[in-house]
């Protein structure tokens, strides 16, 4: 239980740190934020001063920092310079589209990589070699190029999918596939490694001795063991999904947090940038915490690493 409390405290600390880093980023930024906010129209100095006062930018940094933390706790992420709207409401509008994209990309990667790994783990050398090569290429190909190629071929030439916007399932297919390809490469590698390792374990032998079929052994025993290394990848997976969203949403002109972030960076719309970054860091930290806790429940050996359990004993 103390372990859990410590993990929660660490998560809170990390979220606070991310928010502080974002605050510093906002204030380290070169260029006058008020001029950025007003666009390239050059306003008279008195107006700049008034807006600066309105935003509290003339206060000492420490006071601004406390005010910023206070607003953050209340869920107020500030106001977008470019979109003329509260950041929180902008993010609220966009988060659904990104979640749909990330979840479908993740689901797709899982659905494809599980059978791939099962079919090639420790057998079918020719197929296995082919699949590992594909995995290598999938991991090494930038997602924006995959997106551009899919768009060029399937939308512009063959006209199978819409080219713009995020309306409905047809509009989600290509972005989700783009996001899923790199993930699939990694998942399938990790799962196969895990399955191959598990297949060498004694409990598999005993299952085979009991007369279980090869397919049943793979699905029931090996895959379950292989899932644990996949779980350790959850942090990497979430990061890939979130940063993948930035690129994929830009390529496919989809609505979503990633595209808002990309536009905001180009426009130096720092409240939006920091808002999204803090939100992402918080989501990331909390999901990591949840996965960690689940992980300890799923495999108590990892909780304190104190009670090794003999392999092959079914739970």
């Amino acid at each position: 239980m103390r372990g859990v409390a410590r993990r929660v405290a660490l998560t809170l600390f990390v979220v606070w740190g991310a928010a502080t880093a974002a605050f510093l980023a906002l204030h380290l930024m070169p260029g006058d934020p008020v001029l950025t906010m007003l666009g390239d129209a050059l306003p008279p100095a008195d107006r700049v001063a008034r807006i600066r006062a309105e935003l509290g930018l003339d206060q000492p940094l420490a006071e601004q920092y406390l005010a910023y933390l206070g607003r953050l706790v209340r869920g107020d992420l500030g106001r977008s310079y470019q979109l003329e709207a509260p950041v929180a409401s902008v993010l609220g509008e966009q988060v659904g589209a990104t979640a749909a994209l990330a979840l479908s990309g993740f689901g797709l990667a899982l659905v494809v990589s599980v059978p791939l790994a099962l079919a090639t783990a420790g057998r079918r050398p020719a197929l296995r070699r082919f699949v590992t090569t594909l995995e290598l290429v999938a991991i090494s190909t930038p997602s924006f190029w995959i997106g551009v190629l899919l768009l060029s071929l399937l939308s512009f030439r063959l006209r199978w999918f819409p080219v713009a916007g995020g309306d409905g399932v047809p509009g989600l297919v290509l972005p989700a596939v783009t996001l899923a390809i790199g993930l699939t490469g990694v998942f399938s590698q990790v799962l196969r490694d895990g399955v191959e390792r598990a297949l060498r374990e004694p409990f598999v032998l005993s299952a085979r001795a009991r007369g279980s079929s090869e397919a049943a052994v793979r699905r029931a025993h090996a895959l379950r063991h292989a899932a644990i290394p996949l779980l350790t990848l959850s942090g990497w997976t979430i990061g890939t999904l979130l940063s993948g969203a930035v690129v994929v949403e830009t390529v496919f002109t989809r609505q979503g947090l990633g595209r808002v972030l990309a536009t905001a960076i180009a426009a130096r719309d720092m409240p939006v940038v920091t808002g999204i970054v803090v939100l992402a860091a918080a989501v990331f930290a909390v999901l990591n915490l949840v996965v960690d806790l689940l992980y300890q429940v799923a495999d108590p050996r990892l909780a304190g690493r104190a009670s090794p359990r003999p392999e092959g004993v079914p739970r």
Partner: peptide, 11 residues
Amino acid sequence: LAFPGLLLALL
């Protein structure tokens, strides 16, 4: 490490 993937680079 709390800034996943490209996000830190973007910030």
